[in-house]
Amino acid sequence: MDWLWWVGGALVLGILEMLSLDLVLIMFAGGALAGAVAAALGAPIGVQILVAALTSVVLLASLRPWLLRRLRRRVPLEETNAAALVGRGAVVVATVTPEGGRVKLNGEVWSARTTLAEAIPPGAQVRVDRIDGATAVVEPDAG
């Protein structure tokens, strides 16, 4: 029945890990589970404690650093909404000037303007430089 105490301890440590998120207590929980296995196999209490301690140290030294590296790895964010439109191509549907105009962008008609002095005629291919509110700031597409 000693193994039940070890399993109970592992459960408590697992719950406490959910509150701390340091990946330390979960390693001790793994050690407690190893102690439970030793107890279930009939090992004396001294051996159970030694197995739990050694397993915890091995988990802390090997598994925890690997898990931390995996968790802290940066995943590139995928742009969404208006930010995803920057750099995309569009077609001018109404002459675009520094004051305004219209482009068909991503299947929708957007208000647009350009930072260039000359107007961009309808049918011209443009590239979105940035989104300013609900207006696409465009430049002629060089490609």
Rank of each mutant, 00 (worst) to 15 (best):
D2K: 09
W5I: 03
V7L: 13
G9W: 01
V12Q: 05
I15N: 06
I15C: 05
M18G: 15
L25I: 11
M27W: 00
M27L: 01
F28Q: 00
A32C: 12
A32G: 02
L33R: 02
L33A: 08
A36D: 01
A38F: 06
A39V: 06
A40H: 08
G42T: 11
A43D: 14
A43L: 13
I45T: 07
I49S: 07
A53K: 00
T55L: 00
T55V: 03
V57K: 01
V57F: 00
V57G: 00
V58Y: 02
A61T: 15
L63K: 09
L63M: 11
W66C: 12
L68Y: 08
R69S: 12
R72S: 08
P76N: 00
P76M: 07
P76W: 07
L77A: 14
E78F: 09
T80Y: 01
A83F: 03
A83K: 13
L85D: 03
R88A: 06
G89C: 11
V93N: 00
T95D: 07
P98N: 01
E99D: 15
K104S: 11
K104F: 02
G107C: 09
G107T: 12
W110D: 06
W110C: 01
A112V: 12
A112R: 04
A112I: 14
R113C: 11
L116D: 13
L116S: 08
A117F: 07
A117M: 04
E118R: 04
E118S: 12
E118N: 11
A119N: 05
A119F: 05
P122Q: 12
A124S: 15
Q125R: 09
V126C: 10
R127C: 08
D132E: 15
G133C: 08
A134I: 14
A136H: 07
V137K: 01
V137F: 00
A142R: 12
A142C: 01
